Simulated assay, not measured.
Amino acid sequence: MKACAACRRKFTERRQAAPCAECSHRPPRLFLQSLPAWRLWMAVCTQWRTGFGGLVGLDYSAMYRVAETLNVQITPQVLEKIQLLELDTLTDRKKAGDDD
């Protein structure tokens, strides 16, 4: 994250430890049951379908192929988590104006 890199740099320059444990930008804790979805997301987060307006959504054909290669079973729960990550990414990009 850009915020984390800037913060670490600032505290490194001051020769102090960054207060990462209390930071609101700290990523959430990954639960064991979410690990298959996270592994799959990390492997397919570059597999986007694009249009004239920018990102449209994940390439699900590629996602299923990668899941097969990684031996990750796409259960309804895994699919729902991937779709939430996809929606979050698309929403963040819209807010940032990256697909204008």
Rank of each mutant, 00 (worst) to 15 (best):
M1I: 06
M1L: 08
M1T: 05
K2C: 09
C4F: 01
C4S: 02
A5F: 03
C7N: 08
C7Q: 02
R9N: 13
R9H: 11
F11T: 10
F11D: 04
E13Q: 08
Q16P: 04
Q16L: 13
A17T: 11
A18V: 04
A18H: 03
A18L: 02
C20V: 02
E22K: 10
C23A: 06
S24N: 08
R26A: 08
P27V: 00
P28L: 05
P28W: 00
R29H: 09
F31L: 14
S34Q: 14
S34A: 12
A37E: 03
A37W: 03
W38P: 03
R39M: 05
W41Y: 06
M42I: 08
A43N: 01
A43W: 00
Q47L: 07
R49V: 15
T50Y: 11
F52E: 11
G53Y: 09
L55M: 13
V56W: 07
G57C: 09
G57F: 01
L58T: 05
D59N: 09
Y60A: 12
Y60S: 12
S61P: 06
S61Y: 06
A62M: 08
A62P: 00
M63Q: 05
Y64I: 07
R65P: 03
R65L: 12
R65V: 08
A67F: 03
E68H: 13
E68T: 13
T69D: 15
T69V: 11
T69A: 15
T69N: 15
L70R: 04
N71K: 13
V72C: 03
Q73T: 13
I74C: 04
I74F: 03
T75V: 05
T75M: 06
V78L: 05
V78H: 00
L79D: 11
I82L: 15
I82C: 09
L84S: 15
L85M: 12
E86Y: 01
E86L: 00
L87W: 02
L87G: 12
L87H: 09
L90C: 09
D92C: 12
R93T: 10
K94I: 15
K95R: 14
K95L: 15
G97T: 01
G97N: 01
G97C: 05
D98V: 07
D100Q: 08
D100T: 09
